[in-house]
Design a protein around this nucleic acid. Structure first.
Lengths: 140, 140
DNA sequence: CTGCATGCAAACCGTTTGCATCCCC
DNA sequence: GGGGATGCAAACGGTTTGCATGCAG
């Protein structure tokens, strides 16, 4: 619940996970990240990757994407922005539709929840899948 | 991919699942629905519930919600509307913010995807959890 | 030395699937 | 009688967790 505050140690593993995540503009799943990190730290465990992603997300260093699909995805850019997910292959990209600043206020007015945030997710078919490359296992 | 078309048989199980789902305005998970249905059909299997929810979603009879959280949730009302999810207990409610009709067009303009749909999900704290009843296992 | 972080493997949980049986047409 | 639907249980995939060891402060 605290941001950047509980200054955790920046271990080699943590640092490299963060570096690898920052390198890409895709929004890798934990195991994709695991594969990337393993090239530099061959003995790292999947559990460590999960633990650290969770930790960094809690501390606001990265974003755990609240998107559909079966796997969680992570994002090194923490400013609010929206995403589009390919309903064929599951890939997630940024979309630069302007952020709807007043949506949260509107929502707060019409709900008994304490509204904290929002996210917009588009679904569609990515360029690769449009070209008939139905390669990806079809997510939903 | 077909809507209402492949007219599947309306078995007792399917009918009751649909009835129970229609009864509630919460957005039950498969196993919550399983519990509800089991009161009327004690011998029904979880697999049957999953199979039929999937089928009915494909045929457009119900909605499989593309929301965050660990479990999928289902909704008997198929018109486009947005949701708010309690980040403490995971519960999902409708929110009656007006649907943003032109968002998809905007998105299509700024993306190389073929944009098909969108969904807005708010996060917040539900009334029950605000009252200190931190009962629910904290989802994220 | 002390405790947090790691690697490893087993446990977990939600969902899917294979299969024998059942039931409707 | 035949084909889809069901109940059951095992398999699966992603994530979490327990535990012994390692390493930094």
């Amino acid at each position: 619940m605290n941001t950047t505050e509980s200054m955790m140690r920046l271990t080699t593993q943590r640092q490299i996970i963060l570096e690898e995540l920052s390198k890409v503009k895709t929004h890798p799943t934990a195991s994709e990240l695991y594969d990337m990190v393993r090239k530099r730290l061959p003995r790292i465990g999947l559990g460590t990757v999960y633990r650290n992603l969770e930790l960094m997300a809690e501390n606001g260093m990265i974003l755990k994407l609240e998107v559909g699909g079966t796997q969680k995805r992570f994002d090194a850019s923490t400013h609010t922005h929206y995403h589009i997910r390919c309903s064929n292959c599951g890939r997630v990209d940024d979309i630069d539709t302007p952020v709807l600043e007043n949506l949260v206020k509107e929502a707060a007015a019409s709900s008994s929840y304490k509204v904290l945030g929002h996210h917009v997710e588009f679904t569609g078919i990515c360029p690769a899948c449009q070209k008939g490359k139905k390669a990806g296992k079809s997510f939903h």
